[in-house]
Write a protein that binds this DNA or RNA. Structure first.
Lengths: 248, 248
DNA sequence: CGGGGAGTTGAATGCAGTCAACAAATGTGG
DNA sequence: CCACATTTGTTGACTGCATTCAACTCCCCG
């Protein structure tokens, strides 16, 4: 991990601000909020950002790259809770019990903006809108968690895989508009760990989706030529999907 | 639904306050916070509190009874997201997109304290601690969602059912200490809808758990004589389980 | 007493897991 | 730049858990 505390890039010019916590604030409020940030950090793929059981002292806005959030299970498996994408707000915890319930690993090389959590206390007193911005971002995360839960509980593996791929594709696409494919730095085993499937079965589903011409996935990139067709397999309507992307 | 706006019981004396949103506040702060509440409402079992797609205008603290939160699926099934128990804070949503992503039905007769959401804006400006109280409660909910996700994704049905029953039992027990059984107003089909299993298979698992002497379930009540043994089947340690109960 | 919801049982089907081996891609050091 | 090691992806055969369908019982409530 490398940390940079000097000459931090300005939030005003930030390319991903509209999809991040500070995207919820008016530009004139950024002056008060930007002092929250203490550093910009980079992690290499595979590095831990934090561990399950840690006491949270810093929150992060993911600036670039993907982060995998997961819990370790008794039997040695791990359950991936979600993949964080640029704009995501991680590890904010202010309750009395600030022990983090999951771990986070950089799925690719990542850059983060870092916020010491204790600074939020005072800033929120001066800038109540920040509290609502945090609530808003949290609500989106919860909504995604609900979708994940719903998708995982529903039975056919093809549906689950299609839903996950489509969600990630749409979110990435909204960040890098115009590109014909999106970065996809995770493995089939990761997909399995996220959906409660074996990597072997994920592989078979990938092949089936590929055979149907719905996805192409190589060189750590994902192509989806026909979103509507994939949405049909994922058993979700496109408007419904978009509503998951709003807010952040 | 019946609504009572006069002579509301005092928050100071509330029996479930310690496990609710206001349990996060100091008693001297309750004076400022109590004006948030507009009414106490009762719903009969089966009544909707709100529907997926509604715009949220009121938040609720569940005072007594259980509420089922769920999403309707394309194929007519429904996915239960969680069962809300007394003390739970429901339907708070302040983001720009205030459309609720799930529906809520009273699982039993319930009593709720009702809070018009627009009142929060001003109160938080005067009482920043309220913002942290809300965050704290939200964090607990998210943590439970993570546990649910993890439990549902892990494979054997017996584990999932045991985990759900144990969680509900422990939470209810912490509310009604001393009792030898807890209210259990939901059906086996509800359990199935929560875990992504058929009611038939849930039934078989119930029988197996009963045969092992781990649970007893009749007259809308649940007995768990040996928490530790059930926790073993649920593949969770008791300390781990308790940590899910903290905060609210 | 009759009806409907909830729970129970059995048999047959099928989706996804397991095990084992191999192929392809990626990364590392000599 | 090649040789080797490791990770990731692919294939096949076999097993088993959970679903499906259908019938039946129990119990509560009007």
């Amino acid at each position: 991990m490398k940390s940079n505390t000097k000459n931090l890039p300005k939030c005003q010019d930030c390319l991903i601000r509209s999809s991040s916590l500070f995207g919820e604030l008016e530009t004139e409020q950024l002056d008060k909020a930007r002092s929250l940030r203490s550093a910009q950090q980079t992690y290499e793929a595979g590095e831990y950002l934090y561990h399950e059981g840690d006491v949270s002292e810093k929150a992060f806005t993911l600036y670039s790259g993907w982060v995998t959030l997961f819990k370790n299970l008794k039997n040695g498996d791990r359950q991936i809770l979600r993949f964080a994408l640029p704009g995501d707000f991680l590890c904010y915890k202010v309750g009395k019990h600030k022990v983090i319930d999951h771990s986070a690993i950089a799925a690719s090389d990542v850059t983060l903006c870092t916020f010491p959590i204790d600074r939020f206390k005072q800033t929120i007193a001066e800038l109540p809108d920040l509290a609502f911005a945090i609530s808003s971002v949290t609500e989106t995360t919860t909504q995604r968690c609900h979708s994940a839960l719903t998708s995982i509980a529903s039975h056919p593996a093809e549906t689950k895989v299609a839903f996950l791929l489509l969600s990630l594709y749409v979110r990435e696409m909204s960040l890098s508009k115009g590109a014909e494919c999106v970065p996809f730095p995770i493995t089939q085993e990761d997909v399995g760990d996220a959906l409660g499937l074996t990597s072997i079965h994920v592989n078979r589903v990938f092949q089936s989706l590929r055979a149907q011409g719905l996805i192409e996935c190589k060189n750590r990139c994902l192509w989806v030529s026909n979103k509507k067709a994939l949405a049909k397999v994922a058993k979700i309507s496109l408007p419904e999907l978009e509503s998951l992307m709003v807010g952040i």
